[in-house]
């Protein structure tokens, strides 16, 4: 079965290049004719995830896999981890410092946004061990323009 895989290394706190993996994914999905509304959902999730890994994590890894029936975004880092995942999922909850908030991040909407925009989201995290977020999007027949 055809599968397209691509991965990117994310550099910690490199805000100059943060977002580039997401943009590259966005462009790739456009080229293979994924339905625009779905691309937008993937792009929002990709960007939030990428920013989280760049902001909080070390040695971030960003992977995308496109199969005929689904898209998987797998973003992981070796950062501080999330202490209380349930709490982190609450809208508006944020551990961001004042400095990050001033940059426009850390409004506490990242994870809730990612959950709303993906079809399924799984978080694995342990304090001090890093975080891995896997998001899945199902590709229904017709969500691509030229299904072969």
């Amino acid at each position: 079965m055809a599968a397209l895989k691509k991965s990117f290394q994310l550099k910690s706190r490199d805000f100059m290049h943060a977002g580039e993996a997401s943009i590259s994914v966005q462009n790739m999905l456009k080229q293979i004719g994924i339905e625009p509304a779905l691309i937008r959902r993937v792009a929002i999730c990709a960007y939030e995830g990428e920013m989280n890994a760049v902001t909080h994590g070390e040695n971030g890894n960003f992977r995308i896999e496109v199969n005929t029936d689904k898209i998987i975004l797998d973003i992981s880092d070796e950062g501080p981890g999330i202490e209380d995942i349930e709490k982190a999922m609450e809208k508006g909850f944020s551990t961001a410092t004042e400095e990050y908030r001033e940059m426009g991040f850390g409004a506490g909407m990242g994870l809730p946004n990612m959950e709303t925009n993906s079809d399924r989201m799984d978080i694995e995290s342990e304090k001090g061990q890093g975080t891995r977020v896997v998001m899945r999007f199902s590709l229904s027949p017709g969500s691509r323009k030229n299904e072969t």
Partner: peptide, 13 residues
């Protein structure tokens, strides 16, 4: 531009 297939995309990579 006809959309690319997944195989074609992999070929590009």
């Amino acid at each position: 531009r006809q959309a690319l297939t997944i195989d074609q995309m992999q070929e590009i990579e």
